[in-house]
Computed example of a mutant assay.
Amino acid sequence: MNLSNKKILITGADGFIGSHLTEELVRRDCAVRPFVLYNSFNSWGWLDHMEPEILKSLDIFSGDIRDPHGVRQAMKGCDVVLHLAALIAIPYSYHSPDTYVDTNVKGTLNIVQAARELEVEKVVHTSTSEVYGTARFVPITEEHPLQGQSPYSASKIGADQIAMSFHTSFDTPVAVIRPFNTYGPRQSARAVIPTIITQLANGCRTLKLGALHPTRDFNYVADTVRGFIAAAEGDRAVGEVINIGSNYEISIGETARMIAEIMGMELETETDRVRLRPDKSEVERLWADNAKAKELLGWEPLYAGKEGLRRGLEETMRWFKNPENLKAYKAGIYNI
């Protein structure tokens, strides 16, 4: 599929990954309709910070993914839907799990139902590596069992299954991509890499962190964006679940040490118990097998391995070190 002559709806376009995806598609001369969460401030999230030339090309729709009528209205006239809107914070899912069902499960139902009725050409639904839970084998393939170790991951398992059920039941052209731990500029301080960077950039010398031993497969946001676009373009993605990951495993502790080294700072850490997940809820190990993405999409990470992670972290730090960007973050508190 050639996206240059398609109208593309991006849900969650006001967020971290969604804003980067919006920018890239505009640069590729695509017609983009960002779906942003309605609020009384008329804030468009990270879209508010875009270059004027990009912003004026956007057909912005304000609404709520939980409202089926608004979703259908937003989707009218669109050929492709990239569905990123979701509640993603794991600690907040312990606090308010009902909202995760409404947003992640029912919101996804609203998307695929409208796409079916309007005969949309392609829906790319966003999953997460958290649906795998702690790895039973590595690297993790798409055949790995799904384990809902938090209300968040359980809601995403439900959303994935709803999305794929519409492909199976109604032949709705759905593809599911499963990004592993995406990081980069604009990421929320609810994630570990911005937590580390913002604490150090604000002069903290003893970092307050949760568990340091779990491992993650970090994926730079530019690679994740390329994965979305490859899935939207690729005919072989329909009916498939596809990992988007770097195929490189590193612990949280080692990641923190790498960040401190790049920033030229000594690292001391302190375990903040409020940041620890319940024992059985902690995902101990994530490591992506990305062979399917290479085979079906022709996608592979440009920020691969230890050196790729280092380059991605350097680019991320340059963005966070800008005082205008850094002041948007509350580094002195635990962000759930």
Rank of each mutant, 00 (worst) to 15 (best):
E284L: 14
E284N: 12
E284Q: 14
R285V: 11
R285D: 11
L286G: 09
W287N: 13
W287K: 06
W287C: 14
W287S: 12
W287R: 10
W287F: 15
A288S: 15
A288R: 06
D289W: 02
D289E: 04
D289C: 05
N290C: 10
N290D: 12
A291K: 11
A291H: 06
A291N: 07
K292F: 02
K292Y: 03
K292W: 03
A293H: 00
A293K: 00
A293L: 02
K294S: 07
E295C: 02
E295L: 04
L296E: 07
L296K: 13
L296G: 11
L296H: 10
L297G: 01
L297F: 02
L297Y: 04
G298P: 00
G298C: 00
G298W: 00
W299Y: 11
W299V: 07
W299G: 12
W299H: 12
W299A: 12
E300F: 12
E300K: 09
P301M: 12
P301G: 13
P301S: 13
P301C: 11
P301I: 13
L302D: 03
Y303K: 07
Y303N: 08
Y303L: 07
A304F: 05
G305A: 12
G305F: 07
G305K: 10
G305N: 14
K306N: 06
E307D: 13
E307Y: 05
E307H: 08
E307L: 07
E307W: 05
E307P: 03
G308P: 02
L309M: 14
L309V: 10
L309I: 12
R310C: 06
R310P: 02
R310A: 07
R310V: 04
R310T: 13
L313M: 04
L313E: 02
E314T: 15
E314Y: 09
E314L: 13
E314A: 15
E314M: 15
E314N: 11
E314W: 08
E315K: 13
E315R: 11
T316D: 00
T316F: 01
M317L: 15
M317R: 09
M317K: 10
M317G: 09
R318Q: 15
R318L: 15
R318A: 15
W319I: 11
W319G: 05
W319P: 06
W319C: 06
W319H: 06
W319A: 06
F320P: 09
F320R: 06
K321D: 08
N322L: 09
N322D: 15
P323V: 08
P323K: 05
P323C: 04
P323G: 07
N325F: 11
L326T: 06
L326K: 03
L326W: 09
L326P: 04
L326R: 07
K327V: 13
K327R: 15
K327C: 08
K327T: 11
K327G: 02
A328W: 06
A328S: 03
Y329L: 01
Y329A: 05
Y329D: 01
K330S: 12
K330E: 14
K330W: 09
K330Q: 14
A331P: 00
A331F: 01
A331I: 00
A331Y: 02
G332E: 10
G332Y: 04
G332T: 01
G332S: 06
